[in-house]
Each structure stands twice: as structure tokens, then as C-alpha cells.
């Protein structure tokens, strides 16, 4: 009965959302940054693979933060 492991169920893994091109553009405009100035995520990262993210995509991450309750950050998917 080996069920397929879903990494997003794990307590250590926060919520990941793959942004569409338009959403990504909007976020970048709001933050006034170039995508490569954001933290990166490798395309080979288990979370990126699970979402089917390609290099150049933006992933929105909603972290559970002990200080802010919830914190939203973005990662730029890079090759590797």
C-alpha cells in the first residue's frame, strides 16, 4: 500500500503556489525588483517539480511564521 508521498503534506513544507506569467509580472512590478533579485528555487527542487515549475517561473510561498503568523515570499525558479 505504498501511497505516493505528497511533500506538501509535510509539516516542514509551507504552501507553494505557482504563479501565472501575468501574476508574476504584477508581483514584480509591485515589489520593484528583477526576478533574479528574489530568492531562488532550483527547477530540480522537489517542490518545484511537484508544481511543474520551469526556470523563469515565480513561486509564491506562504510560510507559517512564528513572528508574523503568516509571511508571503516569492522564489524565482532557476535552472539546476
Amino acid at each position: 500500500m505504498p501511497k505516493k508521498l505528497n511533500i506538501f503534506d509535510h509539516v516542514l513544507v509551507p504552501k507553494h503556489i505557482l504563479l501565472s506569467k501575468e501574476e508574476a509580472k504584477k508581483v514584480l512590478r509591485e515589489l520593484h525588483v528583477n526576478p533574479w533579485d528574489l530568492p531562488w528555487m532550483r527547477a530540480s527542487d522537489p517542490a518545484a517539480r511537484a508544481l511543474g515549475a520551469k526556470p523563469g517561473d515565480l513561486i509564491k510561498i506562504i510560510r507559517k511564521s512564528p513572528t508574523a503568523g503568516e509571511a508571503v515570499i516569492y522564489r524565482y525558479v532557476v535552472p539546476g
Binding site: 511533500i7 516542514l12 509551507p14 528555487m41 527542487d45 522537489p46 517542490a47 510560510r63
Partner: peptide, 16 residues
């Protein structure tokens, strides 16, 4: 953890 669960999980693991 980084390999199996991803970089965000690794970040949490470092903090913990």
C-alpha cells in the same frame, strides 16, 4: 531534507 522535501523545508529545518 532539502533533497526530499525542498529548499523551503530545509529553511524550516535550519530554524528548528
Amino acid at each position: 531534507i532539502a533533497e526530499v522535501l525542498g529548499i523551503e523545508a530545509a529553511r524550516n529545518a535550519i530554524i528548528n
